[in-house]
Simulated scan of single mutants.
Amino acid sequence: MKSTGEISGRIVTPRGIIDGTVSFKDGHIVAVSGNPAADNGLASTGLTLVPGFIDLHNHGGLGGAFPTGTVEQARRAAQFHRSQGATILLASLVSAPPEELIKQVEVLKELCAEGLLFGIHLEGPFINACRCGAQNPDFIYPGNPEDFGQIIGAAAGWIKSITIAPETPNLVALLELCVQHGIIVSFGHTDADFETTTHAISQATALGLKVTATHLFNAMPPLHHRAPGAAGAMLAAARNGEAFVELVADGVHLSDGTVDFARSERAFFVSDAIEAAGMPDGNYILGVLEVEVQGGVARLKNGGAIAGGTSTIAQQFRRHVARGMTLCDATQLSSTTASRVLGLRQHAIEVNAPLNIVALDSQGQVAAVYVKEI
């Protein structure tokens, strides 16, 4: 990719939509010029330019699996999602014995150091086996600060997020490790009620932690008007500015109506993609469990639970813009809010920001990705 040049089209900026040109030099944006334009969907001709997509929950793609793959397999997965516009990506693991998690974070930290991955997300093992979803319940166990500390040490600073059940033992000790190492705590895979989840969120925020919900509504009790459960607690916390919530907005994990219901300035899209993303229907693996993909929907062969996703953030962006969502709202959900979760100061198409742009054609397909190389 050229480090100096310019690109024109309909541009989503922090101050609204313009038709214009972005100029960049040495990997930074040096000028953004143009005239105001309507926020009425993708450009009918030419390109639409949006900030690079951010995916904070991703298990792989194009046949490469972050939980079990080699460096080269993980690199293939990361490069696939980069080609589809996810310029900032966390590699998600699943519950496994601590020695296996240590082994895999040592694999992935090489790609983190290269700048291909932004970091690592541990989805377990300190979750609730009764809400295991597509994770092996044999590898799920109560919160163990010693094990967590060893995994953190092996990752050499690249653990950015961990999914924990609010009801797991030793929660405060786990949260304190998150504070020490700058790790986001994401509550999920839980059977906790509203009160337990709310208390856990309060404990985390009192320590100054960033809090998210792991794939809201999935792997937690259904929302009920007399028992709002973990999902209700996370939505209430988001409304109060105490948490952010992940939405797998692919039409499989959540209906489009549920996405509309849960949308806010503190919600963001994630793919929950597995190695089947970008691949045809067939048989795949998530962790150690066999997965079958039919019609683009991944389910465990044994039991039929949804087993991660096959979409990309770009596909979710395209899906919801096609439904009538504005470009600004779709950008917030696919990029801007997640950048706040990560604490990124300049993840936007504006002067002085690092070059980080996805160009979409009139059908919403990724035409080009412009990103400052590390």
Score class of each variant (00 low, 15 high):
Ser3Met: 11
Glu6Cys: 07
Arg15Glu: 15
Asp19Ala: 10
Asp19Gly: 10
Gly27Trp: 02
Ile29Gly: 00
Ala31Val: 00
Ala31Asp: 15
Gly34Gln: 04
Asn35Phe: 13
Pro36Tyr: 06
Ser44Glu: 15
Leu49Asn: 01
Val50Gly: 05
Gly52Arg: 02
Ile54Pro: 00
Asp55His: 00
His57Trp: 05
Leu62Phe: 11
Gly63Ile: 01
Gly69His: 08
Gln73Asn: 13
Gln73Leu: 13
Gln84Ile: 02
Gly85Met: 04
Thr87His: 03
Pro98Glu: 13
Ile102Tyr: 04
Ile102Val: 15
Val105Ser: 05
Glu106Met: 11
Val107Ile: 12
Glu110Val: 15
Gly115Gln: 09
Gly119Thr: 08
Glu123His: 06
Ile127Trp: 01
Asn128Lys: 03
Cys130Thr: 14
Arg131Trp: 11
Gly133Lys: 01
Gly133Val: 01
Ala134His: 03
Gln135His: 15
Ile140Lys: 03
Asp147Asn: 13
Gln150Lys: 14
Ile152Gly: 02
Ala156Trp: 00
Pro166Val: 02
Pro169Gln: 04
Pro169Phe: 03
Leu171Phe: 02
Ala173His: 07
Cys178Glu: 06
Gly182Ile: 10
Ile183Tyr: 01
Ser186Glu: 03
Gly188Gln: 05
Ala192Asn: 05
Thr197Asp: 03
Ser202Asp: 15
Ser202Phe: 05
Ala204Trp: 06
His215Pro: 14
Asn218Val: 09
Ala219Pro: 08
Met220Arg: 01
Met220Ala: 06
Pro221Thr: 08
Pro222Lys: 12
Arg226His: 11
Gly229Ile: 04
Ala233Thr: 07
Met234Thr: 10
Leu235Gln: 05
Ala236Gly: 01
Asn240Gln: 13
Ala243Asp: 05
Val245Pro: 02
Leu254Phe: 12
Asp260Ser: 11
Phe261Met: 14
Arg263Val: 12
Ser264Phe: 01
Ser271Tyr: 05
Ala273Val: 06
Ala276Thr: 09
Asp281Ile: 07
Gly282Glu: 10
Tyr284Ala: 11
Ile285Lys: 14
Val288Met: 13
Gly303Ile: 11
Arg318Ser: 12
Thr331Pro: 07
Leu333Trp: 00
Ser334Ile: 07
Thr336Val: 12
Val351Gln: 12
Val351Cys: 03
Leu355Glu: 05
Asn356Phe: 02
Ala359Lys: 06
Gln365Cys: 14
Ala367Phe: 08
Lys372Phe: 03
